[in-house]
Amino acid sequence: MNSINRSDIQVGLQVSIVLKQDQRSGNLTAGIVKNILTKSPTHPYGIKVRLESGAVGRVKTIDA
């Protein structure tokens, strides 16, 4: 599921994000959403979030 809508993402959700330094390689980092950083309802590259681990990146998938 490619999530580009802010309404699809909630604090506490398990997601996979791509970090800034991993954008070229596409490596994903899994974690739980602590904060939603993007204010607009959608973003073409994914909604930017901060994970509980402190990592910041754009959501690529929502993990069930």
Rank of each mutant, 00 (worst) to 15 (best):
M1Q: 09
M1F: 06
M1I: 01
N2T: 07
N2I: 03
S3V: 15
I4G: 12
R6M: 11
S7A: 15
S7N: 15
D8Y: 08
D8I: 01
D8T: 08
D8G: 02
I9K: 11
Q10T: 15
Q10W: 14
V11W: 12
G12F: 09
L13P: 04
Q14D: 11
S16I: 11
S16Q: 14
V18R: 01
V18H: 04
L19Q: 01
K20P: 14
Q21S: 12
Q23A: 11
Q23N: 10
R24A: 15
R24L: 12
S25E: 14
S25H: 06
G26I: 00
G26S: 00
G26F: 00
N27H: 13
L28H: 08
L28K: 06
A30P: 10
G31T: 12
G31A: 11
I32F: 09
V33S: 02
K34E: 05
K34L: 07
N35W: 12
N35S: 10
N35R: 07
I36M: 07
I36Y: 00
T38F: 07
K39C: 07
S40H: 11
S40A: 14
S40M: 15
S40F: 11
P41L: 13
T42G: 08
H43P: 01
P44Y: 05
Y45Q: 11
G46W: 04
I47F: 01
I47L: 06
K48A: 03
V49Q: 01
V49P: 02
V49K: 03
V49R: 04
V49H: 05
R50E: 09
R50D: 06
L51N: 03
L51Y: 03
E52S: 07
S53F: 00
G54N: 03
G54M: 01
G54A: 03
A55Q: 05
A55N: 08
A55C: 08
V56W: 01
V56M: 08
R58A: 07
V59S: 05
V59R: 02
V59K: 09
D63Y: 10
